[in-house]
Amino acid sequence: MKKLLFGILALGFLSSCNNDNVSTQTEDPGKSNESSASFANKRSCPSEEIRKQALQSSSELRQKYSALEANTEKFANDISLGKVLADGTVEIPVIVNVLYRTTAENVSDARITEQIAVLNADYGGTNTDVSKIPTEFQTVKSGDVKVRFKLANTVRKSTTKTSWTTNDAMKKASTGGIDATNPTNYLNIWVVSSMPSSQGETLGYATFPESAGLWNDGVVIAAPFFGKTGTSSPFNLGRTATHEVGHYLNLRHIWGDANCGNDLVADTPTQTTSNVGKPTYPLYNTCSGVQRSVMFMNFMDYVDDAAMFMFSAGQKTRMQAVVASSGSRAGLRVL
Rank of each mutant, 00 (worst) to 15 (best):
C45Q: 12
G204I: 00
D263H: 09
P183E: 00
A70Q: 13
H243F: 03
W215H: 09
G230N: 12
V84E: 12
K52F: 07
N298W: 05
N236I: 01
V334Q: 11
T113Q: 14
C287K: 10
G30N: 11
A110P: 04
G213N: 01
G143L: 12
A330Q: 01
T162K: 11
S23G: 05
D144T: 08
G200K: 00
S16Y: 13
A324Y: 01
Q138R: 15
T154Q: 04
T181H: 01
Q25K: 15
S193V: 07
D263T: 10
L335M: 05
K150Y: 04
Q291G: 12
V96R: 01
K278C: 12
E34Y: 12
T128S: 15
G213L: 03
P224N: 03
K171T: 06
D122M: 09
V107E: 11
D144I: 06
Q315H: 12
N106Q: 12
G238N: 10
L237D: 07
E210L: 02
T102W: 02
Q53W: 11
P196S: 09
E91C: 06
N19F: 07
T242D: 07
R292E: 02
D78C: 08
E244Y: 02
S59R: 12
S57Q: 13
F137R: 06
A258C: 13
D217K: 02
S274N: 13
Q291P: 07
T273P: 02
A67T: 10
R156D: 05
M308P: 01
G88A: 13
N262S: 14
K64L: 08
T202E: 03
N18Q: 15
T268S: 14
G314T: 08
V276M: 05
M308D: 13
V245F: 09
R333Y: 00
V276L: 10
K278I: 12
G261M: 07
M319T: 06
V294Q: 03
L214M: 05
A222V: 03
Q53K: 14
G261V: 14
L5K: 12
A307F: 11
T240S: 09
H243Q: 15
D301K: 04
E244I: 00
R43Y: 15
P209I: 03
L187S: 00
N120R: 02
L14S: 11
S108C: 04
P134A: 01
I116V: 13
L55K: 00
L81T: 11
G314M: 05
P282R: 03
A173I: 04
V107K: 11
N127V: 08
P234H: 02
H253L: 12
S58L: 05
E136T: 13
K141R: 15
A173S: 14
G204F: 01
G327F: 00
K52V: 07
A76Q: 08
P269T: 12
L99V: 04
M295L: 14
L85A: 15
C45I: 11
F225I: 02
F39G: 01
P29A: 10
I133C: 10
D144Q: 07
Y65R: 00
N41E: 10
A169D: 13
R333Q: 13
R51E: 10
S131C: 10
W190G: 00
G124M: 02
D168Q: 09
V290D: 11
P134G: 07
A223N: 05
Y284S: 11
R43T: 09
A37G: 11
R62G: 07
D257M: 09
N97L: 00
